[in-house]
Structure formats: C-alpha cells, structure tokens
Design a binder for these strands. Structure first.
Length: 412
RNA sequence: GGGUCGGUGCCCGAGUGGUUAAAGGGGGCGGACUGUAAAUCCGCUGGCUCUGCCUACGUUGGUUCAAAUCCAACCCGGCCCA
C-alpha cells in the first residue's frame, strides 16, 4: 500500500523522515488529513531535558515544527524531562554528566519556557502558550518518580538486550569497549513510557531520537494504545559547519542572544551549510539559492534568521552596524554592546583587565591572545599584555575587539 | 570472585628514573590571505596582576639527590574465566 496523499507543506518542510509510513490502518498523511477534516486534535509530543539553560537554533527547529502543529489545530505536549535529565541520555560524550539537583532542573525548565516565549503573546513567541487547548506542559517526574519495581521490571521486560545494542550509540560503545552502565538502557524505556502516559499520537525529535521514539511505539503497543508516529527533524549543523550544534562544542547561536551577536555569528557561517540553514530556520522559498552570490547568501541568511527572533528593524540595524564596524567606521556605530569598567581598579595591566572583565577564561589565555595579535582597541592591535592603563579615561568610549567575534565598547 | 591488560593535558596518543608544562596528531583560538567563507601558510593552546611562583600524568602513601616513569595499597575500566 502506498501513500497517495501528500503531507501538507507546513509539515513536510525540513523533515528528515517520518515513520511508519503506514500505521495500523492509515498512512501518516491520511491521519493528518483526517484530523483536519474532522477537527480532531492530535497530541504531538516533544520532550526536552532541562540539562542546560540555553536554547539554541538547533533546538529551535523542533519547536518551530511543534508550533506549526499548534497553528494547524493540534496539541503540543511538551514534556519537561526533569526526571530523565538526571539519568542522562547516553550520548557517549557526556560521560561526566553531572547529577543535577531537583532545584537546578526546575530552574532550567523555567528558563527554557521563558526562552520559548511563555508569557508573551503567541505572535511574539516560539510556541503558542496562549491557546490553552493547544499546549500541555508535563514534567515527567510526575509519573516516573513513583514507579515501583514491578512497573520497572515490566518496562524492562518489553525490550531485549540485542534491541538495545542495535542502537548505534550503544553499539559503538559496546564494540569499542567503552562501558555502558545498565541504567542507561532505562533511558529509552522511560522516554518511551512518557509517550504511553501522555498518549501521544505523534512524537517529534531529532534523527538521533529515532530509537527512543521507536521504543515509545513498542511500549504504547504493550499498553494497548495506538502507537505514535515519529517525525524526525534533521540535526542542525553548528557554526563550524562540521559538528552538530551543541553547547559543548561552542558552535551555537542562542535564541536570546542580542541581534548584533546573532547576526555576526551567522554571517560568517561556512558556505556549505547555508542552504541547510535557509531550509531549516526560515520559511523562505528556496528557489533563489541556485544562482546567488555566496557572500550575499550569508548576509541574507543572517538577516532572515535574526529577523525571526528580533524583528526586521533590529535585524537590519544589526546588519548595518556589523558592516560599518568591519569597514572601520566605528564612530557611526551606536549599537555596540557596552562593557562596564566599574569594577576595575586602576591602574591596571591590559591582560588583567580583560581577564577581570571575564572576556577570557584565564589571565594566561588573555595574555596569550594579546601577544598573538588578536586584540584591538579602536582598530589598533595592542600586543603588549603588560600595557598599563592608569585611569578610566584611557579607555572610556573606546572600542575593544577580540578576534572577529567579540566587540565591546568600554563604558564607565 | 580469579586471571590479565590498562587509566597521561579538551580528545586521541607517545613517553618507562633526570631541563618534562610532558613528543606527535586532532580539535580549539589568534594572525596573514580571502568574500568576515573554504583551502593554504604562520603562531598559540595548565593556572597565577607573571622576568617569578604554583599546580599537573587515576588516588594515597613510600623508595630516591631526583618519579608520569620504581614499590605498596586502594579506586575505576576493558577482555578472558567463573
């Protein structure tokens, strides 16, 4: 049986894969179509683990898709994995994942929701928090905290070791003799159990979530529910153009970053991922990609994305400031982030100043960067880390540049 | 539980008594070039208000003028056996 309906474009854009093509009796597109005709609300699950405090563009594509479901009449079931956050998703990289306290997790969750626009009107926020019948926020500790051993055994009984080892991440670790702790097998099961509890019809996730979503289907079947469909979205490549966007790789753009920093980061992204960014982060028709100047594309993409989060006016201002800055017309630039000299005790050595202002991780690093020629004041390279500034007057109003990314204006 | 191998800087990985803040590579950062991209080339890549001082090779103790390197105990991991 083939699927002769097409997915609507609000849903199909930028998705990597959906599965299964055909559920128990209908194809995925039939279900979407049927829901629309009958005004049926589908329950669309998206889980986030509140392990950090910043949401970046990579996450945003999931949330934007979730919003699209909302806008088309469905229910966003946002699961805050406050409980699972404490186990840790076995991503291999995070072997030293810290145990987060309950309090920490709650706070992270709160900042996530704020960043997603909770409290703002729907047209200014990423998710629609206004339409109460289209948003459901659940914390998974609600049901996971009290699971008793019997239930846990039941969950564990529903999957096999070889299923688990089929998962690429586990498999890689197993074959390369990197330890896998038993409790790590629990993570997919618990995440899958979330689907059972919230009775999800569709689960959204990155392609790396395929396994977990599939486990969710198994468990739903086990608990006599219709298994969910999975919609997999691509993993956004980070600013380096190579690795996935992730806080630990320092290649992210945060949703709440100021326009200038957002624009300037995006505008220097490698060429090869530009089309990808256009497709995943904007709503533009992509036909113009074919014959455009690559430099223009960078600028346009940066502008579009910045507009999305800060509005057209702010974005244009950022673009113009950014360009003026690199052309050297600093005096015309009004929007450079300021950095306060209040806490500084003069006289002060240059390297110590930068370290004290937290512009570098350490004073040694500050010193090295200065020596290496990476630091400018008013466009002049300053390469003497021991240069002494005697008073605020030496610096006030001047513009500091560190590498290509950091630009600050000294203020009292 | 027994046997065996192993635990080195952000990561991988060399080093098996003496300028060792620790080869080499990757990654990262900075510079030149460029389109603020890529490629290439060059430099930097433990901390400290720093011509010096302090921490570092799983942990703790020991041997020695001197240890990442030798010894002991412990902790952690892989594999084989049970």
């Amino acid at each position: 049986m083939t699927d002769n309906l097409k997915l609507p474009s609000w849903l199909s854009r930028g998705i990597e894969e959906y599965f299964p093509i055909k559920g128990t009796d209908q194809t995925f597109s039939e279900i979407i179509d049927h829901a629309k005709k009958n005004n049926k609300k589908l329950r669309v699950k998206l889980g986030i683990d509140p392990t950090g405090t910043d949401i970046h563009l990579g996450h945003s594509i999931l949330f934007k898709k979730l919003r699209a479901f909302q806008d088309n009449g469905h229910i966003a079931v946002l699961i805050i994995g406050d409980f699972t956050a404490q186990i840790g998703d076995p991503t291999g990289k995070n072997k030293t994942r810290v145990q987060l306290s309950e309090k920490q997790v709650k706070e992270n969750a709160k900042t996530y929701l704020t960043q997603l626009g909770m409290g703002k009107p729907a047209n200014e926020s990423i998710l629609d928090f206004d339409s109460k019948d289209r948003i459901e926020i659940r914390y998974n500790s609600e049901w996971l905290k009290g699971l008793n051993l019997n239930s846990i055994i039941e969950l564990m009984g529903s999957a096999t070791v070889s299923q688990m080892l089929a998962k690429e991440e586990f498999n890689k670790r197993y074959t390369s003799q990197v330890p896998i702790a038993l409790h790590e097998f629990l993570y997919p099961l618990l995440q899958g159990y979330d689907s059972v509890v919230v009775q999800s019809d569709i689960e959204l996730g990155g392609t790396d979530q395929k396994f977990n979503i599939a486990i969710g289907r198994d468990l739903q079947r086990h608990f006599k529910q219709d298994p969910q469909f999975g919609v997999l979205l691509p993993i956004l490549t980070g600013l380096d153009g190579i690795k996935k966007m992730s806080k630990s790789e320092f290649n992210t753009v945060g949703l709440t970053e100021d326009p200038l920093s957002m624009y300037s980061k995006l505008e220097k992204v490698p060429d090869n991922i530009i089309p990808n960014y256009f497709e995943l982060l904007t709503e533009l028709d992509l036909s113009f990609l074919e014959n455009s100047n690559p430099r223009e594309l960078q600028r346009r993409m940066a502008l579009e994305v910045t507009t999305l989060f800060h509005g057209a006016e702010e974005a244009l201002k950022a673009q113009s400031n950014c360009e003026k800055l690199f052309l050297g017309h600093k005096e015309k630039v009004g929007e450079i982030p300021e950095i306060s000299l209040k806490e500084i005790v003069f006289p002060v050595k240059f390297f110590y100043l930068l370290s004290a202002l937290k512009l570098f991780k350490s004073s040694s690093e500050s010193k090295r960067s200065i020596k290496g020629g990476g630091v400018k004041i008013d466009s002049q390279k300053v390469i003497n880390p021991d240069l002494v500034f005697n008073s605020k007057n030496d610096l006030e109003g001047k513009i500091l540049q560190i590498g290509k990314k950091i630009i600050k204006r000294f203020e009292n």
